[in-house]
Design a protein around this nucleic acid. Sequence first.
DNA 1: TTGTTGCAATAACTTAAAACTATGGACAAC
DNA 2: GTTGTCCATAGTTTTAAGTTATTGCAACAA
Lengths: 308, 308
Amino acid sequence: MDNFTLRQLRYFEALAQHGHFGRAAEACAISQPALSVQIRELEETLGAALFERNARQVRLTGFGEDVAAKVRDILLSADELADFARLSRDRLTGRLRIGVIPTIAPYLLPTIIGDLTRRYPGLDMRLRETLTPRLIQELAEGRLDTAIVALPVSEPSFTEVPLFSEEFVLVRPSADADKPVPNAETLREMRLLLLEEGHCFRDQALSFCNMNSSLPRELLDGSSLSTLVQMVGAGIGVTLIPEMAVPVETRSASVSLARFDAPRPSRRIGMIWRNTTPLADQLQEVAEVVRQSAETLAGRAAGATART
Amino acid sequence: MDNFTLRQLRYFEALAQHGHFGRAAEACAISQPALSVQIRELEETLGAALFERNARQVRLTGFGEDVAAKVRDILLSADELADFARLSRDRLTGRLRIGVIPTIAPYLLPTIIGDLTRRYPGLDMRLRETLTPRLIQELAEGRLDTAIVALPVSEPSFTEVPLFSEEFVLVRPSADADKPVPNAETLREMRLLLLEEGHCFRDQALSFCNMNSSLPRELLDGSSLSTLVQMVGAGIGVTLIPEMAVPVETRSASVSLARFDAPRPSRRIGMIWRNTTPLADQLQEVAEVVRQSAETLAGRAAGATART
DNA sequence: TTGTTGCAATAACTTAAAACTATGGACAAC
DNA sequence: GTTGTCCATAGTTTTAAGTTATTGCAACAA
């Protein structure tokens, strides 16, 4: 087996360079006998003499010269590894895999991508948009580093940190703009358009009306908030969308917005990660950046809602 | 400073591969706590977590994956070094720098180059032809590994091994073929052509006649044995050449050869190397190959002399 | 020859590193 | 709860690497 050590290779390089045991030892900050022993052991492991010692000088053998070239290569790679580690230390770097639910992703991502790359230059951000159960699964399997979802998730192996709350806004045809704002009960009488099954936002909306997802209802499910708003604009029914979606989704559709009276429906959005992730500290930082991005966005959204 | 060890890198690779401390430790033939400690120390040296440990599995972090790639590279280079050493062990390999004096080189080299490359495939042989003093200097300085010269050299720092003796043959014009063979005294009366100063063979020839090199003589010095023989052919004088040169140098010239009566002039040819060279064992082997090459050559030379 | 000097090797010993066994604590599964 | 798996920690022993002191060899000057 080849059990020489990196230390021996460093000593070897020093001796090859200085051609003198005493000075090479000094350069390595060890005593001359220590160097002699390590060089001898390296020669024994390799099975051939690396140096020719004579009374006036220490010189590499032909074999030693060949070895020296390879040793330089190894030590260079080792130093590069150390450098790489030093540069990565205490810094969020390399790959960061973030999962986001579909009712957040289109509105929040454009902002946070910019904010995060600005905050962490050189970060290789990989984004995944899918439904909560899959995000949870991928996070548990280590295929994601973190996810932005609606809280609570209640997985004991995950840490949750709240980011913000967002209220739900009623979207109804422009014609209804002057009608009174319905409450949870009256909403149940209306034709409520919802996202298809699996979206957490669907359940959150239903829960506001105290309705059960699995009850037989006359339903028209949309695959995205955008679709739902278009359907409302066509006079097919009403829907709820999260506040954050308002500026994007109601820009071009002829619909009217209405805010509920208290208790207003809302949901809490947060970040989750594995309890065991070594990135916990850095993810706390990321959460803070996301929180601020969302705050900025909410300000704009509120403005948009007010104008409508 | 970066003081991780190759051992830690090997353990790291095993753990990255197995994803399980117990099994990785087994693969490394150490106990599980030993592995845990070494991995922890590697992580401390690098300043960041390499693995995420949880109850069911051990998984590389993003940083760990980057490190794993670099570690593979380092370990590969280390293994290559070990392989290279193992292949070189006990085998004459790589560069071998041989010096030869000019009165031997043209006759011996063609044969021994062939014999040595046949005997040591992959040997990178580098030949140097020059006068003895320079060979000695270059050998002492480590710019040659060995030299083939006339013995004795009497350098206490060199080891000498005899290869063979060769007699000197008188070369005289064809017209003199039937004259009696001169002895040392009568030779002194003839016009003796010699190599220029610096060639050991010049001194060896002179010493046979009990003449001093520095004595004022009517001389015509040649720069090679070939030149001398041509001059003899032109009737300018007589010369001595070593037996080994006979087949090559007298092939085309119209000269006659004569062997002296006892005591015949001769010289001993041998190989020398630094006492301290680690190649001593291999050079002994080389000497044996050269000796046999010379023997073959001498047989042919004797045949040629007889025929003339 | 005979010190003397410079330098690497060796010896004897100490300190540091790495291994072992035994045990503890977290967590998932039953 | 209880059990089993698995990694971390503790305490101890073994091995590796370093120290100082000394020896031995070769070169050089007297």
